[in-house]
Design a protein around this nucleic acid. Structure first.
Lengths: 197, 197
DNA sequence: GCAGTACACGAACGATCGTGCTAATATCGG
DNA sequence: CCGATATTAGCACGATCGTTCGTGTACTGC
């Protein structure tokens, strides 16, 4: 790998970590350059615009998400085991165990939901893909005979998403130590009433 | 009311509307002054600092929320009717019907969950109060015999919060037209399995 | 009508933002 | 080892940020 690619990668890793705490908008080129002991213009040359940097950060984060959440879950057999794996990995991701400051996509989604542009479009596509994956995973569980046949995959996905968003909210802002336990209970109930009778 | 209080109120109303779209951080004094055809310094003099402006905006938004969501719901009789009223008003609030750009508190919570300061503290207190109110309302429904006696109010609150956060996410970012219908279904299911047997 | 206060304005400040330029330096194939 | 190229630094720019200060103006109580 060429030298430029190495530093570019270093920059991106730091940028993902920073922006998962502060958000994508107050990720600033000068600050990032200082952190990495680079010159502002030297760092800038790698991306040519701030929007391109933001997109690269999202791309990097998406890769990490796929690697750490999606791919391991897809190794589980279709059906309830895979649904559970997805949930567990997702929880670990949105905790600060993997990245500091929680989930970058939650922050970015709120920041850009009203702000048109390439970043917004990227986010919509990524989130849409993720929701579709959850829905498909739920439908596989139907095919496997684990979940009831009249289950709506999309509805399952939206409810699961809500459970994790609530977990995020109660854990991060309210710092409620009982939140995660309630989240797991809610998930168990969702699975229970999705099961085949 | 003195002249100053009038303009201050005008400023705040506009500021609440703007920041519910853009968030509290990119609510900028210069831009706000231009919108209202005031000088930057003249507007600034009303608040003496940006943080004070942000706090005033949150305070104003809290008042509106109390007036438009909480108070009407409290007029309903304790029990399931009040729970339903809370849900309906909350939905209307987080839609763009009342404020443009959705719920200011969701945006602000994500923006400030990792950023210490007076704004963060205000948000934590306000959201805590709101969650407590939901939990209490659920417990009233238990007392009224509508909900089962072993219902955990806090857990009910967290689940309801998740349902609305998912609605927010799917409606705003993903612009999914079926989201609200799924939200209502999820709410009905939550109520149904909270009911007394 | 006058004094005193409340209010708004304009100009300017230091800082920081993203973004160009140009020059120096590091890397690497031949 | 050299020359081409890729990579970084230095500097400056216009814009915008929050904030301060001095000045004018409108309003109010006496």
């Amino acid at each position: 790998m060429a030298k430029g690619q190495v530093t570019r990668q270093t920059i991106l890793e730091r940028a993902v970590a920073v922006s998962s705490v502060t958000g994508l908008e107050k990720l600033t080129i000068g600050q990032l350059a200082d952190d990495l002991k680079l010159s502002k213009s030297g760092l800038f040359a790698h991306f040519k615009s701030k929007e391109a940097l933001q997109l690269a950060v999202l791309d990097q984060a998406t890769d990490r998400f796929t690697e750490l959440v999606v791919r391991p879950a897809l190794k589980e057999p279709r059906g309830e085991p895979r649904v559970r794996a997805l949930f567990e990995r997702w929880m670990a991701w949105s905790r600060n165990t993997i990245l500091p400051g929680g989930c970058l996509f939650v922050t970015a989604s709120v920041e850009f939901d009203d702000q048109p542009g390439a970043v917004h479009d990227f986010l919509v596509r990524a989130q849409q893909d993720w929701v579709d994956l959850i829905a498909t995973t739920a439908r596989f569980a139907v095919e496997a005979g684990h979940f009831r046949t009249n289950l709506d995959g999309k509805r399952f996905a939206q409810e699961l998403y809500g459970i994790l968003l609530a977990n995020y909210h109660f854990t991060r802002l309210l710092a409620d130590p009982a939140a995660e336990s309630r989240t797991r209970t809610a998930f168990e109930h969702l699975v229970a009433r999705s099961r085949a009778v």
